[in-house]
Design a protein around this nucleic acid. Sequence first.
RNA 1: GGAGGCGUCGCCUAGUCUGGUCUAUGGCGCGGGAUUGCUAAUCCCGUUGGGGUGCAAGCCCCUCGUGCGUUCAAAUCGCACCGCCUCCGCCA
Length: 424
Amino acid sequence: MLDLKAIREDPDAFRAGLARRSEAHARDIDRVLEADRERRSLTAAVEELRAEQNRVSKAVGSAAGDERDRLIASVRDVSDRLKQLEPRLADAAEELGGLLARLPNVPHGSVPVGESDEENEVLREVGERPSFGFEPRDHVELGERLRVIDLERAAKVSGARFAYLLGDAVLLQWALVRFCLDLLVAKGFVPVVPPVLVREDAMFGTGFLPGDEAQIYVTRDDDLYLVGTSEVPLAALHQREILDPADLPLRYVGYSTCFRREAGTYGKDVRGIFRVHQFDKVEMFSFVAPGASWDEHELMLAHQEEIVGALGLPYRVVNVCTGELGASAAKKYDLEVWLPGQGRYRELTSTSNTTDYQARRLECRVRLAEENRPVHTLNGTACAVGRTLIAILENHQREDGSVAVPEVLHPYLPDRMRALAPRS
RNA sequence: GGAGGCGUCGCCUAGUCUGGUCUAUGGCGCGGGAUUGCUAAUCCCGUUGGGGUGCAAGCCCCUCGUGCGUUCAAAUCGCACCGCCUCCGCCA
């Protein structure tokens, strides 16, 4: 949610900022201003009547006889007029709220303008792409030969875009999770296993609703939403709280399964486990003071680079363009890993600075000397397990179909797992 | 799943039966001040969160879990929902 008072004070700045996403959003500023004028004018009228009603009603309490009857008669008229006006105010407030809820965050000035990932700005490439003396296999083929990924049976049981992870891939998963957790806990992140079913207001607060309903699983009988990322329950952790500035920054690292419907992606990434309905992810989430989020964003990116670098994966960092920004993000970095099986860089992690956008929707504030203000929140992938497995399989594969396991994971694995070997 | 109890301004608490002087009581905590040669103690003032209006001081509206309703008027009465607790049943 954008700051309505700030929009009122400097609408041009918001128009210009949102225009970098789309002209339609820029025009919405005018609708917001109009709805705001309407709501404020009705608010003034209603509150004046309420003040009158309170005054006279209070006098009724201490009056008696004719005087009492006369007062009740006069205030009844005020109450009747209120009953006319109050629904109009409610409508106006809802109109304004609806418009405001649909406006995305204003992109930071450093975000490149663009519509698709073609326009993302590549900041740097790190690590050396492997050169094979043979034709590299993709993760589906490697996974089958290693018998660690079973897509056919998953389709039988659950449908397309599901997978069974088996055997050493499972051990690898826990090693990855523990590696990330240990690394981040050492940096002060509090580990969390959050709920993965949440109420609507958590989805609203994080900016996924309204807007992304087509991508979200909903339970039929309980009106609970399955989270597509633990960002949702982590952000909502401090919903409707006023935080002590001395407690900031608050840094959490969540581990959870994530659920995504992936509606409308039918032709895309159909092979393997790159894009599935269910995957596990380790996620960073920070609550910081309003002035501190840009530094925190760079810090999160650094943590991501440390993790991916430690796994020996070649990657590049991109500054995601306005058209590919989520509604709540003011700026987003993607870390794209090189996938030999696809011969291109693909998104492995991402980190967004949502500034005060989520915090305002979640009513998560910090008590400052002048006033209580929304905190800033940031999220970043520490490890999307499925995609990281893909990257490890494809980058560390050998000609015989075995796969070297990154050294940093060895302490978390049995000795025999210095490499994954196909069973013949 | 069944039965019962309870949600008050950070924490505890009075008020709810019997609607109006509730502008929500008191304590603790917290902030500021006064006094006392330190520590301590005592006293005074302040201390929910939003919104509207105004240059400002201020004034006004909403907020007693949430919403809707009854009423001139709701912490107080009714309904629904949310949450917590106890007992029974079931369960990893």
